[in-house]
């Protein structure tokens, strides 16, 4: 554990808190992509299968929080707040993301065991799971400020993992190329968003695309 990893995980927790806070206070999930949220649940369930055979207090607790909160968000979106979700603007074709992640997982896992292939699948899928959400923001041309805070916190989490990986490599030669490549791709996908978030939202203006 190092400060970058800890900060990254905290941003991940903050993003989930912001998302649930936004939904429960506004009683609405407008502006949130159901498809991205469904992909995240798929990511957590396929990555954290090792909950059944590995226990570490910090990691296991976080894993349960991520799976549980993700399932809760989907419950809110399909149950109480379903009328506020507009499927007509949530039209990204996720089958290509799932298919691409599945192909990469089958071709290049660390080991060809079901758990390792699913772990690799989750790493690749996470790297692109935000795309339906970013696509939705792009289609509508604007986003509520709280939604932009959510996307920022979620992006900051994986961005902070990059110095964490550098630190771990330098201090213990820990080296996880799959996570690193996918994590860098994930961060790059957020980069446009980060730029607009920085130049607009942080200066008190609304998040609107040029």
């Amino acid at each position: 554990m190092n400060i970058f990893r800890l900060a990254g995980d905290l941003f991940h927790l903050i993003s989930i808190f912001i998302l649930i806070h936004k939904m429960t206070t506004s009683k609405s999930c407008s502006g949130i992509s159901f498809k991205s949220q469904a992909l995240y649940l798929l990511v957590y369930v396929t990555r954290y299968l090792d909950l059944f055979w590995t226990f570490a207090l910090y990691n296991s607790t976080m894993k349960i929080i991520f799976i549980g909160s993700s399932a809760y968000v989907l419950h809110l979106m399909t149950g109480p707040f379903k009328p506020t979700h507009d499927p007509n603007i949530d039209t990204f074709k996720v089958r290509y993301l799932i298919g691409g992640a599945a192909i990469l997982a089958l071709l290049f896992p660390y080991k060809w065991t079901p758990a390792e292939v699913l772990w690799t699948f989750s790493i690749w899928l996470e790297s692109v799971a935000i795309l339906p959400q970013l696509f939705m923001v792009q289609r509508t041309g604007a986003a509520e400020t709280i939604t932009t805070h959510y996307i920022f916190a979620l992006g900051a989490y994986r961005a902070l993992y990059i110095p964490n990986w550098i630190y771990r490599y330098l201090t213990s030669t820990f080296w996880d190329p799959l996570s690193i490549i996918a994590g860098v791709i994930q961060t790059v996908l957020y980069s446009d968003f980060f730029y607009i978030y920085y130049t607009k939202v942080l200066q008190g203006r609304k998040f609107e695309l040029p």
């Binding site: 660390y110 080991k111 080296w175 799959l178 996570s179």
Partner: peptide, 10 residues
């Protein structure tokens, strides 16, 4: 050398 399934991150 890879991480070889030693997944101690989230």
């Amino acid at each position: 050398e890879g991480n070889e399934g030693n997944h101690d991150e989230l």
